[in-house]
Amino acid sequence: MKKACLCGLLLVAFGGPVVAEPSSKVAWTLETLALVKNGDREKGRQIAETCAACHASGPQPAGTTFPDLQGQLATYLYKQLRDYKDGTRASEIMAPITASLSDKDMADVAAWYSAQPAQAGAKAETVSETAERLVERGDGRRILPSCNACHESDGRGQTIDVPALAGQNPAYTEQTLLDYKSGARHNDIYGRMRTIARELGDEDIRQLARYYAGLKR
């Protein structure tokens, strides 16, 4: 018995049969890229009728952390839907909703939302200097690349799945960065966003969310 316990302990300690799940099961192979590219907007619109309760166009009611999806990158939307379904992105709301969606459905919904005009951001009256510096130059001492490097200078996002941030609901952006920081959200491959968010102070995060909410795409 003792031996069995010891073996078990050793196996756990040295990662024997305990295989950690990848942070996302989505891989951008040519097939997946083609699937998302060929998403059917009309079918997507029909499926998206269910989504409108939380993701309708127009500004979100204050305080809600539901993200604006209009004008978001289709590849990013598709990856998030898949991750919700696979459980690699945890959400009590989205997990049951995505459970019945096929890969094709997700590509269709992604195509529909990405084709909608993005929310026009309301420029924040005062933009914090810290946020602006992080966005434009990053911070060498904390090994932080500028946000622009991946999310582009107008916050429109970048291929393949770097999300657009411009005009996004600030409460959502703030919560997302906090979740990356704490590890509650962990569907970024190789922990790229978690590594960055861990270096950000809570006030940096709040200011960055305000900054991006005020950007127009």
Partner: peptide, 15 residues
């Protein structure tokens, strides 16, 4: 090696 699927498993899996 297939760069797109590096993270899914094998030698370059995250863990």
């Amino acid at each position: 090696i297939d760069s797109a699927t590096l993270h899914l498993g094998g030698e370059f899996a995250e863990d």
